[in-house]
Amino acid sequence: MNSFTFTQATAVADAVQANAAHDDAAYIGGGTNLIDLMKENVARPTHLIGLKKLGLDAIENLPDGGLRLGALATNADTAWHPEVEKRYPLLNQAILAGASPQLRNMATDGGNLMQRTRCYYFYDLATPCNKREPGSGCSAIGGYNRVCGILGTSDQCIATHPSDMCVALAALDTTVRVSGPNGERTIKFEDFHRLPGDQPERDNTLEPGELITGLDLPAKGFEKNFSYLKLRDRTSYAFALVSVAAALELDGDTIKDARLALGGVAHKPWRDKEAEAMLVGQPATADTFRRVAAKVLAPAKGYGANTFKIELAKRAIVRALKQATEMNQLVDTDAFQNSNP
């Protein structure tokens, strides 16, 4: 870990200004990923700007019926906020599927978007990684890529975005509010994270010095029919091999509106709007779901150790859509809690 200086910002403008005043400055919220990266020498900021005194931790109703999540609200406070539980249960489920209670108590909502991939090679300085050191090569391709992506990958990088929360935020059409040297702007969630292409070192479309201030959820929360299904190597404290956020609006058995986003498979939460459109007007049956799953995974590419994710993702999509339809909301673990004879 490098030596670094630290200032505590008390207003967004001060934070942005402090950032501009230093080379290699970084904002720090909960620090649950940044500190790890610094300890491993993956991130070497020379100056940290603390955000915890900015406020920005409120969760408030918006006039248009939506809900604003302050960037500094913790993941735990967000998941258990009554408005989130009632109106955006998909988000509640996704947040609670991630990390551990201790981490969720520290981690902030803005920080959740900013967390970096958990690809093994990104964290190990002894191995080449284009994301960590552009041009050095991608070790995951041809290596141990069980955790890596199958959709939207490039020959430069096959890393995934590790978040669960972001998968739900993508499905819910969230808007990201940011402040920066050039003032405030909003970014559509689907445009926030990016695919690796030939610049895998860039995880998102933030401009230098820009700071996330809030997340705006639209009024529509799909609170009646939803499912967040996460498949992983153990029941808690493991990143998704594949996760699915599914949300449906049903008219009887017919699908009126649908959202479908995948985690653990791409450099960003993977949303396929064509697949969503395919669902609309169709009966909510396993047959429909299988066709859609096949469509979502049609462009997928396996890299050896992660090729199983293609089939697993298909099955997960079918199951998540089925669960959303039937609302037998049994998260994987819960199904086993009371099953002992």
């Binding site: 070790s139 141990y144 190597d233 153990r234 808690s236 404290y237 002992n340």
Partner: peptide
């Protein structure tokens, strides 16, 4: 412990990726 033979190195060298059961994995 998963080794990448190209590097002769165990790659999942931390508690997050070297998986052992959590409480939720253990029942009766």
């Amino acid at each position: 412990s998963v080794m990448d033979h190209r590097f002769g190195r165990y790659m999942n060298h931390n508690y997050a990726e070297y998986h052992v059961p959590v409480n939720a994995d253990i029942h009766d």
